[in-house]
Nucleic acid binder design. Structure first.
Length: 459
RNA sequence: GGCGCGGUAGCCAAGUGGUAAGGCCGAGGUCUGCAAAACCUCUAUGCGCCGGUUCGAUUCCGGCCCGCGCCUCCA
């Protein structure tokens, strides 16, 4: 069954097919800049990309997908952070890389097959810049930086239709101050391939290409170089958040295609941004959440994953804490449904509508709808293995506890023991009074036939 | 200013030229001393507004109103 995905280049849905004879699907996904914990907006993109990875594996086989996602571990933000904290750049970026991995694991995102770092691929980037200079697509400036000459690549703007955009820049951006390095450039739209060392870069520098000073690579070249090294000159799919479409991806195309002379990516995909409480996420609005922020509010990472899946990846999704509450409840229903399934035998085709929705441009809300349509019919005659295949496709893990178990304070435990005794004595008035006292301390006492447990009260 | 997206029940959110998936919330019920959990049932004559095309439009066309995103090395 064909998988279709919207293609940002042609602006239409297109079928995904491996283009190389080995049948391996080559998938490059722009990764995080590691200078702080990623926020849930970042994770929307990574969860969507994880879904692509899973759908591809189901379609072509687990060994027929090669997924590469980079780590940007040198740029203005990482360097600034390292200077602020008086720590080595590598130490800072390692810390946040580890945190990113832990968060991804918690969200049940499959690790990419290769996760290259920018600092680990300096020679590849320098080599590519040298190649571009030799071919006349790049030039060094007086300070030893190197810029890509946008005018030398006729295909520039095909992805973002930037030429249409530039017509308006005169009116809207005319008053904008020029950046310091703009004076060095031959043309305003040229972009940096190599940035000459400046004092604020501290000890962060590498030898540059011939004709350039020591310094560090620009942002765009890392993806071109790492993608080329790990996936070859032409890849099957390149993805990222919508904000990367321009200039990042447009620039990647220019760099790679000017070097190799071949088409860079067969297919482009961009997921939309996550909004929070109806507005763009930003620190100034105070609506920027990390995974740990949500954990602190008692929500599980899986609830975030579910909430992210509840919106179509190509539509803005408005995130609210309410949606996490809904997600927790939905997960609980799936959990009990799974527990009711027979481990052997049963129908394995009932979930086909779920897969069909995913194959149709990753329509996750429709997939969840189809899933619950089956769930609501009841567990009779449904194979556990078939349900688990759905869970794999969506990346949902149900065996994880909904919330981390917390230890009740001694005071609460004491009240609970008293209430249990009152209950055994059938002193209902006293039992109810004690339940109220426990609740007042922020805990819930949940009874079973023979036992009870304490949980933090639901907000 | 230009480009693009969206307005579907209290909230979130699919979808189709033929009469509205699903989740949450809410209501009722089974169970429980009571709760919680679980399970069962119910919940939009309606899809921003106004026209048009059509046997028939939420779905197509035109206009309007409202919200949002991008055009700044932010996923």
């Amino acid at each position: 069954m064909p998988v279709t995905l919207f293609d940002s280049l042609t602006r239409s849905p297109r079928e995904l097919r491996p283009s190389q004879p080995d049948g391996v699907y080559r998938f490059y996904n722009c990764g995080p800049t590691v200078y702080a914990p990623a926020h849930i907006g970042n994770f929307r993109t990574f969860v969507v990309n994880d879904l692509i990875r899973r759908v591809l594996e189901l379609e072509f086989g687990p060994d027929k997908v090669k997924h590469v996602r980079n780590i940007t571990d040198v740029d203005d933000k990482t360097i600034r952070r390292s200077r602020e904290e008086h720590r080595a750049l590598a130490e800072v970026t390692q810390q946040w890389t580890d945190k990113f991995h832990a968060d991804c694991d918690a969200l049940n995102c499959l690790r990419p097959h290769v996760e290259p770092t920018a600092t680990g691929h300096i020679p590849e980037q320098v080599g590519m810049i040298a190649e571009l200079m030799q071919k006349g697509h790049a030039y060094a400036t007086a300070d030893g930086s190197v810029y890509f000459k946008v005018g030398s690549f006729p295909g520039y703007g095909a992805l973002s239709r930037v030429k249409e955009r530039e017509l308006q820049i005169g009116s809207a951006l005319a008053g904008k101050p020029q950046t310091a390095d703009a004076d060095e450039k031959e043309d305003g739209s040229d972009f940096a391939l190599w940035k000459a060392w400046k004092p604020e870069d501290g000890d962060v520098k590498w030898p540059g290409p011939t004709g350039a000073a020591a310094g560090r690579p620009g942002w765009h070249i890392e993806c071109s170089a790492m993608s080329r090294k790990h996936l070859g000159e032409t890849i099957d799919l390149h993805t990222g958040g919508e904000d990367l479409l321009f200039p990042h991806h447009e620039n990647e195309i220019a760099q790679t295609e000017c070097c190799t002379g071949h088409q860079f990516a067969k297919h482009w995909y961009h997921s939309k941004h996550l909004m929070v409480d109806g507005a763009k996420m930003s620190k100034s609005l105070g609506n920027l959440y990390t995974l740990d922020d949500l954990r602190a509010k008692g929500f599980s990472p899986m609830a975030l994953r579910y909430a992210l899946l509840a919106g179509h990846p190509r539509k803005q999704l408005n995130f609210t804490l309410d949606s996490l509450h809904a997600a927790e409840k939905a997960l609980a229903t799936l959990r009990s449904f799974r527990a009711a399934l027979s481990p052997t035998g049963g129908d394995s085709t009932v979930f086909e509508p779920v897969f069909a929705a995913l194959r149709d441009d990753l329509n996750t809300p429709a997939a969840l709808g189809a899933l619950f349509t089956v769930v609501n019919r009841g567990p009779a005659g449904i194979a556990l293995a078939a349900f688990d295949r759905v869970l794999f496709a969506l990346g949902l893990k149900l065996d994880a506890p909904a919330a981390p178990a917390a230890e009740a304070p001694a005071e609460v435990k004491d009240l609970a023991a008293q209430r249990w005794a009152a209950k055994q004595a059938k002193d209902w008035a006293e039992a109810d009074r004690l339940r109220g006292a426990i609740a007042a301390l922020g805990w819930s006492m949940l009874d079973s036939k023979t036992d009870y447990k304490l949980e933090p009260a639901k907000k």
